[in-house]
C-alpha cells in the first residue's frame, strides 16, 4: 500500500466516523461540529484527487460560511433531544431507500470504466483547474450557471420576505436623516438676561 492510499483510508475513516457522529451525538452542537469535520475531511479527499479549487471552495463556502450560520442557529435553539429522538427509527425505510440510491450512484461512478467512462489522466503540476473551471462555467455553461444564480437569488428574497415583519412603532433611525441634521434643527440659542439678583430677592 503506498502513501496516497494510506492517507485516503485515514481520511475516509475520519469521514465515516464524523458522519456517524452527526446522527448519533446527543448534543446538537456536537453534531454540527461533526458535520464541519466531515466537510473538511471531504475537502481533504478532493485535494487528493487533484481538485484543489473544489476542495478549497468546499472549505470556504461550507466550513467557513454555511456551517457557521448553522452553528449559530443550533446554539440559540432550545432543542429537546429526547423529543427529537422519538421518531428516530420511523425514518428507517426512507433512510434505507436513500442509502440504496446512493450505493447505486457510487457503483455507477466506480464501475464507469465498464460503460466506457475513461478515468481522468493525471495533470502536470502547473495545470490550474481554477482557470479551467472558470472557462467552462463562464463560456459553455453560462446559461446553466446564471440560472442557478437566479434561483439562489429568488431563494434569498423569498426567505427574507417570509421572515420580514413590518412592526409599527419601531425606533430605528435612518442614518441618512441623522447625517442631514444641522445644528439649527436641534439647538436653539436663546439669550437670557442675567436673573441672579431677582432670584435672590425671591429666596429672601
Amino acid at each position: 500500500m503506498d502513501f496516497t492510499s494510506l492517507v485516503f483510508y485515514l481520511f475516509s475513516a475520519i469521514l465515516v466516523v464524523a458522519g456517524l457522529r452527526v446522527v448519533t451525538a446527543r448534543n446538537p452542537v456536537h453534531s454540527a461540529l461533526a458535520l464541519v469535520l466531515a466537510f473538511f475531511t471531504g475537502a481533504c479527499l478532493w485535494m487528493l484527487l487533484e481538485a484543489e479549487f473544489l476542495a478549497i471552495t468546499l472549505v470556504l463556502v461550507y466550513v467557513g460560511a454555511v456551517m457557521v450560520l448553522f452553528l449559530f442557529v443550533v446554539m440559540m435553539l432550545d432543542i429537546n433531544i429526547e423529543e427529537m429522538r422519538r421518531g428516530f427509527w420511523d425514518y428507517l425505510p426512507l433512510a434505507a431507500l436513500v442509502a440504496v440510491l446512493m450505493a447505486i450512484e457510487m457503483i455507477t461512478v466506480l464501475a464507469g470504466e465498464r460503460f466506457g467512462l475513461a478515468p481522468p489522466s493525471p495533470k502536470p503540476a502547473d495545470y490550474s483547474n481554477t482557470r479551467e473551471l472558470g472557462l467552462l462555467i463562464y463560456t459553455d455553461y453560462v446559461y446553466a450557471f446564471e440560472l442557478a444564480a437566479v434561483i439562489l437569488l429568488v431563494a434569498i428574497v423569498a426567505a427574507i420576505a417570509l421572515t420580514l415583519r413590518r412592526r409599527p412603532g419601531r425606533k430605528s433611525v435612518d442614518p441618512a436623516e441623522q447625517v442631514k441634521v444641522r445644528r439649527a434643527d436641534r439647538v436653539r440659542l436663546v439669550s437670557l438676561k442675567p436673573q441672579k439678583a431677582e432670584a435672590r430677592e425671591e429666596e429672601a
Binding site: 461540529l33 464541519v36 484543489e52 472549505v59 470556504l60 466550513v63 467557513g64 457557521v68 481554477t130
Partner: peptide, 25 residues
Amino acid sequence: NIDAGLLYIMAVTSMGVYGVVLAGW
C-alpha cells in the same frame, strides 16, 4: 508557492470564526 494561494488564505482565515463561536458557547 501554490497556484490557488489567495483562495487558500480566504478558506483558512474563514475558519478562525469557529474559535470565537465555540469559546463563547
